[in-house]
Simulated assay, not measured.
Amino acid sequence: MRKEVRMGVGAGARIRIMELAVVFDGAGVLYAPFRIIKNIERGVTKRSRVSGITCTAHLERGAMAILKTRYEETLEKAEPSKKLSDVIREEKIEIKVVYKKKGVSDREVVEAILEDKDVKLKDVHETMSFLRKCDILPVVGVGVIMDLASKKTKYLIAGGINFFPGTQNLLKQLHEMGVAIFLASGDRIEKDEMAPYLPDMPPENIFGMMNPEGKCKLVRKLKEQYKVIMVGDDRNDYLAMREADIAVLSLQEEADRPGKIFEVADIRIKDIGEIKEIIEEIE
């Protein structure tokens, strides 16, 4: 544990709850991720339990980016033979870099994606077809993992989500307790898409396609008003967890986590419902 966390109960705890904020990562924390990954070089498509962040971390000069668009509104309508890079240009789709290795710039990632000629829309349609067979919410996204050493697309990812069993009940309980709750996710989620499924979280508190620095800045800003708990699960949450007053590491999903994420965590959980117990014990 990196800092002393004092726990207790009583009237004082209830007063401080009104000044408490909890920032949740998305995949692996509030919801289970469903990933269909295609290895572009090998032509192999399969469901993967390994996160895109982990796949990226294994590349010496890797980066992961999300296409800021709704598949059914743009990509789904494109001809299978078209290059993904051409459709991105034609539809003016914004590219959001959500994770990258040290020394890699956002500009370098975007340029590599726009110059790539290997990924076709048929690849996107294939991964999305597999994904839609899963038990997921109608909130899906498309991303790419780039190998900047070769300036090639290593993996194409179609991603979807479904809440862990205790998520919505927990958020309802925290809302009733007066705790401010936020979602800070690297996934392709938008406020109007997610709000119907998160009735106890104000839409303005929902943030998607955030990179590690963005999550950290959000926590730092909230600390001006609240005592902040950051609940993360992987290396892209490290900066925000280090910045938070209390860092909670979610182990609900298997992942190849670096040692530093365990070192920065004050508390580890295996069920999202444990957050309520942690809050009730805060002195």
Rank of each mutant, 00 (worst) to 15 (best):
M7R: 02
K227W: 02
E274D: 13
V97S: 09
A255I: 03
D118A: 13
V110F: 00
F24H: 04
A57T: 11
G8K: 13
P196M: 03
T167E: 08
R35T: 07
R89N: 06
A32T: 14
I66K: 13
A112N: 06
K276P: 04
I136G: 00
R132L: 14
E224A: 13
E126F: 09
K217W: 14
K276H: 11
D147I: 01
F24W: 11
L121H: 03
R47G: 04
G62N: 03
G159F: 08
I267T: 04
I136D: 00
V248A: 10
V104C: 12
M210C: 01
V144L: 15
E280L: 14
K77L: 00
K120Y: 13
E108Y: 08
L148H: 00
L114S: 02
G208D: 05
A244V: 10
S51M: 01
E126H: 07
Q252K: 05
R35L: 15
S185E: 02
C216P: 01
P202W: 03
V219W: 06
K46S: 15
I88A: 08
K82F: 14
I267D: 05
R61N: 14
R6S: 11
M230S: 06
L20M: 10
V110D: 03
G26N: 12
T74S: 02
R242Q: 12
A247G: 02
R16C: 04
K122W: 13
E274Y: 12
P258F: 15
R42T: 08
K82G: 07
K154E: 07
E253W: 05
E41G: 04
G273E: 06
E126Y: 07
D25Q: 05
A255Y: 14
A240E: 03
L121P: 01
A255S: 12
I136S: 00
I261G: 05
K223F: 07
L170A: 01
I53R: 06
L239G: 05
D135W: 01
K46Q: 15
E243L: 09
V219H: 10
E90Q: 07
I37C: 11
K117M: 09
L174W: 03
S129T: 06
P258Q: 15
D106V: 12
T56K: 11
G160W: 01
K227L: 12
V104L: 09
K101F: 08
L239N: 02
I136R: 03
P258V: 13
K154T: 03
D245T: 11
V248E: 08
T54F: 10
G62L: 06
S48Y: 07
P80K: 00
E94S: 09
E176R: 15
A78R: 04
